[in-house]
Design a protein around this nucleic acid. Structure first.
Length: 655
RNA sequence: GCUUCCGUGGCCCAGUCGGUAGGGCAACUGAUUCGUAAUCAGUAGGUCAGGGGUUCGAUCCCCCUCGGGAGCUCCA
């Protein structure tokens, strides 16, 4: 009989064989076999004997899907190991995730030593080489099965399954059987390389009111090389982590007595943010038709009562004088919306004035829970490129497209457009108290944003319960080096606020009409963007963003005057330049400039001074060599002006 | 906010089975005036995150607070 694989290859077998044995044969042993059992598109028991020509679908760990199966199986093996070491631990769920897998247990916390012991036990289990067998039970028997094993979480899971669903189990040898939809490896031996990376607390079903569980994270691969590469990758990531690198590079710091989530920007970090800010303000005002406002950082609580923040967002605000009857209750602003609304209402607007685009470099305060803060990506005070656009409903589609275009331009210029994904952030119809408005409002506004993205050929995902309380959002998401996702840019549609605040415009017929409002950022939050840039470039920023763009290195004290003359000329062209006038050897100065990740070093000595030249060293390809000063100045001024992103020469960090 | 791990000079780390602390790099001073990734010598710098407790005595043991990491929940 002839067995054909999904990839088109085929093999002849003389006699009948089980799927299990065929899979074993064609995939170089269990290491490569992730799962099997699909014959001609129909899922079969692995023990099914094949007697005629057929197409067999065998997943291998080379497929992303197969790797996922391998990791999921590894989570079962881990669960068995934990049950062996802690018979009283209750099992819950253990899925494969992006870079590995986890399993949650109801038990005492795990230490690193516990994880090592579990790893050792897992190796034993893998060595035993038990086959994973699937079987099904009717609903009542399934519940009883797990009740007998005293696994309350599994019982709850089964009870939540639809009445008519197939309830499947997988056993691996005598020791362990788990409720699971599958699929799995055929045999635990297929796990050739794994590592338990960390443990932490997690809530049952992600609900902070439910049981606290202990989660173990790990990863698994089909071979040791891949595992080692992954572990090396984890090390590499640490070098890019903005929270480490940003502090090392002296871009920002934090101080215990100042508080959590309140970073201090040092001169270098401040310089970078100012470069970003000046660019954004000029861009929005000069090229995209925005007017700029400057509004208070706090307001009476009355304002937030009108906006709805007092009801929906009070926990997130810093409230002042609430317990002091003699003083007005105030709050630091968590957003700029109502402030800019009052700017709009300061004068009457015709439909001819719309869209009216108000931008503000806006500092906001949000009272995040203490565990939420992280580096520059989650802070309690931050500054965003905020704007509110007041427009007629007919203008909304075009204006939303303009907002998306601006964001794309900004991200492209920063060189990070490849890092982002789009998300339509929707409300949660099952959680209505969290949101303003009714089904109709949300269906129509969400539909509107969806259409804008479709019309603009944007690939996007949709997510429930991610909207602002007043309207849906187009969120542009990016992942940090650890894979954790943050919103970088947000564009929100709000068809309700204008009415609440009594905003209007005069339409073609001279009547008052209620506008729509777009809340949007263009580059997002400066703190978060800086973090993102640090991680994306590993600290080697494009020249225009660097706090120090050029360092002049005189060979000896004799050439300091010439170095200063060069610096003066560059400064006159708005280049950030310093002179390393220390009495150090040139090799030492170069080393330090390299470690500081400077784009350009200009070495100057007797020859350069005599010829009016500079000896250029840089991070970029094709820049080495002696050239007239004027030529270098022209080059770098152009590079800064165009915000050029140049190709780095690969550097051996250890050198 | 919750679970867990952690907190020794600017940075990386030793160390004390409880007798108030060291090394490397950085900094500072002096010498050196040098041609593309580390010149030499010297000096200074820590109430061992902060507070409380146990003890004759705490950086070390216990408790609390603050701060940092990972994760959960939440969010730009």
């Amino acid at each position: 009989m002839k067995v054909t694989l999904k990839d088109g290859s085929s093999k002849e077998y003389a006699s009948s064989m089980s799927i299990y044995d065929i899979a074993l044969d064609i995939s170089e042993g269990l290491a490569r076999v992730a799962c099997a059992g699909e014959v001609d598109g129909e899922v079969k028991d692995l023990r099914t004997t094949i007697t005629t020509d057929c197409t067999l679908n065998i997943l291998t760990a080379q497929d992303p899907e197969g790797l996922k199966v391998l990791r999921h199986t590894c989570s079962h093996v881990m669960a068995e190991a934990v049950k062996r070491l802690r018979p009283n631990a209750k099992v819950t769920i253990g899925p494969a995730i992006d870079e590995g897998f986890y399993y949650d247990f109801d038990t005492e916390p795990f230490s690193r030593e516990d994880l090592d012991a579990i790893e050792a036990e897992m190796k034993k289990i893998i060595k035993e080489g038990n086959r994973l067998e699937r079987f099904e039970l009717p609903r009542e028997e399934a519940i009883k099965f797990m009740e007998d094993k005293d696994e309350p979480f599994k019982v709850e899971l089964i009870k939540d399954l639809p009445e008519d669903s197939v309830i499947s189990f997988y056993s691996q040898g005598e020791g362990f059987t788990d409720l699971c939809a599958g699929p799995h490896l055929m045999n635990t031996k297929g796990i050739k390389a794994f590592k338990l990376t960390s443990s932490s607390m997690a809530y049952w079903r992600g609900d902070s009111n439910k049981a606290r569980l202990q989660r173990i994270y790990g990863s698994a691969f089909s071979n040791k090389e891949d595992l080692q590469a992954y572990l090396d990758h984890l090390e590499d990531i640490k070098m890019r982590d903005h929270n480490k690198l940003g502090r090392d590079m002296k871009l920002f710091t934090t101080v215990d007595v100042i508080g959590q989530g309140l970073p201090l920007f040092t001169p270098k970090g401040t310089k970078m943010i100012m470069k970003l800010q000046r660019w954004m303000e000029d861009l929005e005002d000069k090229e995209w038709g925005y007017v700029r406002t400057r509004t208070p950082l706090m307001a009476k609580s009355d304002l937030y009562k009108i906006s709805g923040h007092w009801d929906h967002y009070k926990e997130g605000m810093f409230v002042l004088n609430e317990d002091n009857e003699d003083k007005e209750t105030m709050a630091l602003r968590p957003m700029t919306c109502p402030f800019q609304y009052y700017v709009y209402m300061n004068e009457q607007h015709s439909y001819r004035d719309l869209p009216y685009r108000m931008a503000e470099t806006s500092t906001l305060f949000r009272n995040e829970d203490s565990g939420e803060m992280h580096g520059l990506t989650r802070v309690r005070q931050f500054t965003i490129t905020e704007a509110h656009i007041i427009l007629t409903p007919e203008q909304a589609e075009e204006e939303l497209t303009r907002c998306v275009d601006l964001c794309n331009y900004v991200m492209k210029t920063l060189g990070i457009d490849g890092d982002v994904t789009y998300r339509l952030s929707k409300w949660d119809p099952n959680n209505k108290e969290k949101y303003l408005g009714d089904d109709e409002y949300w269906d129509s506004t969400q539909g509107f944003l969806r259409n804008v993205m479709i019309k603009n050929n944007i690939t996007f995902t949709e997510a429930d319960n991610e909207a602002a309380f007043y309207g849906p959002k187009i969120d542009i998401q990016a992942k940090n080096v650890y894979g954790k996702e943050d919103t970088m840019v947000t564009i929100q549609l709000d068809c309700a606020a204008a009415e609440k605040f009594g905003m209007y415009y005069i339409d073609e017929n001279g009547n008052k009409a209620t506008p729509w409002i777009i809340h949007r950022t263009s580059m997002g939050c400066y703190e978060r963007t800086l973090a993102w840039l640090i991680e994306h470039y590993a600290g080697k920023f494009p020249t225009w963003l660097c706090p120090e763009q050029v360092r002049v290195l005189p060979i000896s004290d004799k050439y300091i005057d010439y170095a200063n003359k060069i610096a003066k000329e560059l400064k006159a062209c708005d280049v950030d330049v310093t002179v390393d006038a220390r009495s150090e050897k040139i090799g030492f100065k170069i080393r330090e400039a390299r470690l500081d990740k400077l784009p350009y070093m200009l070495v100057v000595g007797e020859k350069e001074e005599a010829d009016g030249t500079v000896s250029v060293r840089s991070r970029f390809a094709g820049d080495e060599g002696v050239k007239p000063l004027g030529e270098f100045v022209d080059q770098i001024v152009k590079e800064i002006k165009t915000k050029e992103i140049r190709e780095e020469i690969p550097q051996d960090a250890a050198k």
